[in-house]
Amino acid sequence: MFNHIVLGSNDIERSKSFYTAVLGTLGYAGEPLRNVGPGGQTRLFFRHKDGTLGITEPIDGEPATCANGGTIGFRCASAEEVRQFHDVAIAHGGTSIEDPPGLRDGGALGQMHLAYVRDPDGNKLCAIWRLPA
């Protein structure tokens, strides 16, 4: 459904370290593509067959802020991958939020393993694996 998602960062090198490690738990390998935009902002692009995650210094020159109510969800292949995503995020400057990682009853959505973290800039990330119906 999505082609790309872009998040702002106030420290592009810190974000590179964080996302390289965290996305590595999902099978993303290698270095992100580094690009400098026309206004001099450094941008990182983590490309995968399913789309692209961009991390950028804000184009308007203002500080990057996180979206209130916004969450970026990453599909995981297992409950263990959800836990690994969470633990690697914490080890690389993220913050665990909401309930501890684990099994949740999503009612009509079914059961799923979830973990929520905030990246070093405050963006809310979710690792999710839905149990087969």
Rank of each mutant, 00 (worst) to 15 (best):
G70K: 10
A21Y: 00
G39I: 11
P100T: 02
T95L: 07
A91E: 13
G40R: 09
G24T: 09
H113W: 15
R34S: 14
T71P: 02
G30H: 05
R130E: 11
D105E: 14
G93T: 05
G61H: 08
T56P: 05
L44C: 12
R130H: 13
L131G: 05
D119W: 09
R14K: 13
P101I: 06
A127R: 01
P132G: 07
E80Q: 14
T52L: 05
P120W: 07
P100Q: 01
T20M: 11
E98W: 05
L7G: 08
N123D: 02
S96P: 00
W129F: 15
I90N: 06
H4V: 05
G37R: 14
P132H: 06
Y19F: 15
Q41D: 05
T56N: 12
Y19M: 07
D105L: 07
L23A: 04
S15I: 05
F2I: 14
L114C: 08
Y19E: 06
D119C: 09
R43Q: 08
A91S: 15
I97T: 05
P120M: 03
D121E: 07
V6D: 02
L26M: 12
K49N: 10
Y116M: 01
G107L: 15
G54P: 09
E31G: 03
G40W: 09
G70F: 02
F46T: 07
L7M: 14
N68L: 09
R118G: 00
K49C: 02
L131A: 11
Q111Y: 11
Q84C: 08
D121Y: 12
P63D: 06
E81I: 10
A89I: 02
L44I: 00
L114E: 03
L23S: 04
P101F: 03
R75M: 12
F74W: 12
S9C: 13
Q111M: 14
G51F: 08
F74V: 08
D99I: 01
H113A: 06
A108H: 14
R47M: 05
G94K: 09
N123V: 02
I5P: 07
I5K: 01
E81A: 15
L33G: 01
M112R: 09
I59P: 03
D105S: 13
A108F: 11
E57M: 14
L125I: 01
R43W: 15
A108T: 14
F18Q: 06
V88T: 13
G27V: 08
F85P: 09
I128Y: 09
L109R: 13
F18V: 01
N10G: 10
I72L: 12
T20F: 09
